[in-house]
Design a protein around this nucleic acid. Structure first.
Lengths: 220, 220
DNA sequence: TAAAATTTTTAGACAAGTCTAAAAATTATT
DNA sequence: AATAATTTTTAGACTTGTCTAAAAATTTTA
C-alpha cells in the first residue's frame, strides 16, 4: 500500500526514530513531546493514529517503537532532509547555520523521483553539512559517529566530523572559533572542576565548555 | 507587518490573481471555487479571512479583488513556483510535464532568501519551462503573451512561446508532436468547420484541433 | 508496601479548512 | 415586473492537530 502522510505524521516518525537511535529502546511519550515541542496528550493522540496505520507499535503506559514500515518512512524523511541541506549549502551557498529550518520544510515535498534526482545532482554525498550520514536510496545508513570531543583526553588529537546540536547559535559559535568539519583539534588540558577544555585548533588556543565539547563528534 | 500565510491562503491568492489577470475585473466566488477545485461555501469562508487580513477586498454577492498587498504575495508565490519549475527541468532534468505538482508544493517553502538565491543559481531566467514569465525580485512581470496559435491565419508562420494549459496530458501530446518552445510553426490550412489546422513543424505536417491551437501562445 | 510523585491517557475544547443543505440575494426569463 | 434560475452566503458539521484539566496507571520514596 502507498502512504501519503501529513507533515506532522512524518515529523513524529522522525522524532521517534532519532530518540530510538540514541536510546536503543522503546520511546516514552514525554520524550517525544519534548522533541516535538508539544504536549504529552498530543503525542498520545498522534501515536494512536500512527499505530492504527501500522507505523508504530505502542503499549499503553509503556512506550512506542517504530515498525519496519515506520522506520523506513522516518529514514526516507531524514534522507530528504539531509540532501536538501547539502543542496542549500553546496548549491545555494547558505551557511550551515541557516539551513535546518528550510530543509525541515523541503523534506516533506512529495514526489516519486525528486529526492533521487537531487541525490544524483549532488553526486551522492555521504554526509550533510553537519556531518550527519545520509541514508542511501535503500535506507541504508552508516551510523559511525559516537565519539564526542568531551571523551578525548589531554594530549590527544582528533578530527571534527560532526555536530550533535544543529542550532544556529551553536553553529555560529563554531564558525567564530574556526571549528569546522575536517579540522584537527588537539586537546591540551581538561579542567577537573567543570570539564572545560583548552584546545588547539588552526594554530589558536581556545577554551571550550563541556556543553560545547559534548556536542562535537570527532574521530582519531 | 510580516505575513506568514498558510499554503491554502497563498493558493487562493494565486487563483484570484490568475483569474483577475485573464478577466481584468473582480472575481466571482464560483470562478474561484472552480479553479481551486472546491465548493463556493469554502471560498466564501476563505475570502472572508483574506479580507480580514487586508489581502483582498470583497463586496457581498459582488466579487473579490486583490489589494496591493495580496497581489504582491500572489506574484511572489508565482515567482517561486516558476523558478522551482526551472530548477526541476534545468537542474534535475525533469520533463516539463512532470514539474507542476512538485513546484506547487515547493512554492510555499518559507525563507527570506531562498527564492532569490535560487534565482541567482539559475542565472535569473525570464521564462519558466512552459513559457510563463517569471516576476523579478520586485514583483515586476512582463505579460506579453496573448497571441494564440488559433488566431494565426493560413499561410502565416509563428514561433511557439508558451502553453496556456500545463496539464501533463497536453504537454505529452506536444512532446509527441515535436511541438516545443522556440519551434517554428507554419499554418498551412484552417478548416472552416471545426477550426482544426494543418500545420508544418520540424518538417512534418500534422493536424491540430482547435482545443490544441487555442492553448498555444505564439509570436510572429 | 503504602503514600507521594511522575507519567500517560482520557475527555472535552478549539482553530483551520473543508463539506452539505438551506436561506438570501442577484440575475435572467417571460 | 413577477417568477424562475442562478449565484452567493449562512448555518451547522466533520477532520486534523493541537490544547488544558482531570483521571488512571506506573514508578519512586520513605
Amino acid at each position: 500500500m502507498k502512504f501519503d502522510l501529513s507533515q506532522a505524521e512524518e515529523n513524529y516518525l522522525k522524532a521517534i526514530y532519532s530518540i530510538g537511535i540514541d536510546t536503543g529502546k522503546s520511546v516514552n511519550t514525554n520524550q517525544i513531546a519534548l522533541m516535538m515541542k508539544t504536549k504529552a496528550s498530543s503525542v498520545t493522540d498522534m501515536v494512536k493514529k500512527l499505530s492504527d496505520k501500522g507505523l508504530v507499535e505502542h503499549k499503553k503506559y509503556k512506550g512506542t517503537i517504530l515498525t519496519r514500515k515506520g522506520e523506513s518512512i522516518a529514514v526516507n524523511t531524514l534522507r530528504s532532509h539531509r540532501l536538501w541541506e547539502c543542496f542549500l549549502v553546496d548549491t545555494l551557498q547558505f551557511n550551515w547555520d541557516e539551513v535546518h529550518d528550510i530543509a525541515e520544510q523541503m523534506e516533506h515535498i512529495k514526489s516519486d523521483s525528486l529526492v533521487d534526482r537531487l541525490d544524483q545532482f549532488l553526486s551522492f554525498p555521504s554526509y550533510d553539512p553537519h556531518g550527519d550520514p545520509i541514508p542511501d536510496k535503500n535506507g541504508v545508513i552508516k551510523h559511525h559517529k559516537n565519539v564526542m570531543l568531551s571523551s578525548v583526553v589531554a594530549g590527544d588529537s582528533c578530527i571534527v566530523i560532526g555536530v550533535k546540536d544543529s542550532s544556529s547559535s551553536f553553529l555560529k559559535f563554531l564558525d567564530n572559533a574556526s571549528i569546522r568539519l575536517g579540522n584537527e583539534i588537539k586537546v591540551v588540558t581538561v579542567e577537573d572542576f567543570d570539564q572545560s577544555m583548552q584546545i588547539e585548533i588552526e594554530n589558536k588556543m581556545i577554551t571550550v565548555s563541556y556543553q560545547i565539547s559534548k556536542n562535537l563528534y570527532v574521530k582519531k
